[in-house]
């Protein structure tokens, strides 16, 4: 595989990106902490209670960012995987593999917080509404990606197979969401609706700040995981040995 570093793609090689990522990670942790404190303060300390849902609505400050991140990370993962497949950028594929566990975690958290929100509001731990059901399928898509890559021993084949799966998944997600929505309106009507139609600005700010915090967190931890993947995969190269002091 060619190692010719192009002028612009200097950081496209793991060797160059590893130290760069290392320097960036602390900054993203700091940003995550700042946004997190700000968002949680707004959401839990400053924002008023809701007329219909009382204090329990505050779960949206956790549930909505988790949902957004789970969906956003899947798109980003598919993007990097696709780049890695099309141009054989090893680093892109490593980035995709690094994103998957975090995406799965956010999908799980979205389901957990969704369930704990549903119980006091609608009396059931699980409601088969369109968004939660689609979120569940998204979690399965993440787990499938992770399982497929874990089952294939050859890293290059794992990268490419995972990329195809991720791209097929991305194309399918709108289809799945639409069909689940259809199914939901057929069977239950739209009485169960976790989305909020109107929102006080304070609440909106709180949600956005928490979402930013999750985003910074996701970048920080994905970079950390990507660095670990780089060390593992490139362990026979000179730069990794030098990195470890040999």
């Amino acid at each position: 595989m060619s190692h010719r570093p192009f002028h612009w793609y200097r950081y496209a090689s793991p060797q160059a990106f590893y130290p760069l990522a290392g320097r960036m990670i602390p900054w993203f942790w700091a940003l995550a902490a700042i946004f997190g404190v700000a968002g949680l303060s707004v959401g839990f300390l400053i924002a008023p209670g809701d007329a219909q849902q009382g204090e329990g609505y505050r779960i949206i400050f956790l549930h909505v960012p988790a949902s957004w991140m789970s969906m956003f990370l899947y798109l980003v993962m598919a993007f990097w995987a696709g780049l890695g497949l099309a141009f054989r950028f090893r680093l892109s594929s490593m980035m995709a593999s690094a994103l998957a566990p975090t995406g799965a975690m956010f999908a799980f958290l979205s389901l957990w917080t969704g369930a704990l929100w549903g119980k006091p509001m609608w009396g059931a731990w699980w409601v088969w509404d369109a968004r939660l059901t689609s979120e569940l399928i998204l979690l399965f898509l993440y787990l499938g990606f992770i399982a497929l890559q874990a089952a294939i021993d050859d890293p290059r084949r794992a990268d490419q197979a995972g990329a195809i799966l991720a791209l097929v998944g991305v194309v399918n997600i709108p289809i799945i969401y639409f069909s689940v929505k259809w199914w939901n309106t057929l069977h239950q009507g739209s009485s169960l609706n976790l989305a909020r139609s109107s929102m006080a600005t304070t609440m909106l700010y709180g949600m956005l700040l928490c979402a930013l915090a999750c985003w910074m967190y996701a970048i920080a931890i994905s970079l950390m995981r990507a660095r670990r993947i780089m060390l593992e995969r490139e362990k026979d190269t000179l730069w990794v040995r030098k990195e470890l002091g040999f």
Partner: peptide, 20 residues
């Protein structure tokens, strides 16, 4: 088993419309 894990989520729209 791996095929099932990968493919069943993608089958859900077919299931929804078919059973529907």
């Amino acid at each position: 088993v791996l095929v099932s894990l990968l493919i069943l989520p993608l089958y859900t729209p077919v299931l929804i419309f078919g059973a529907g």
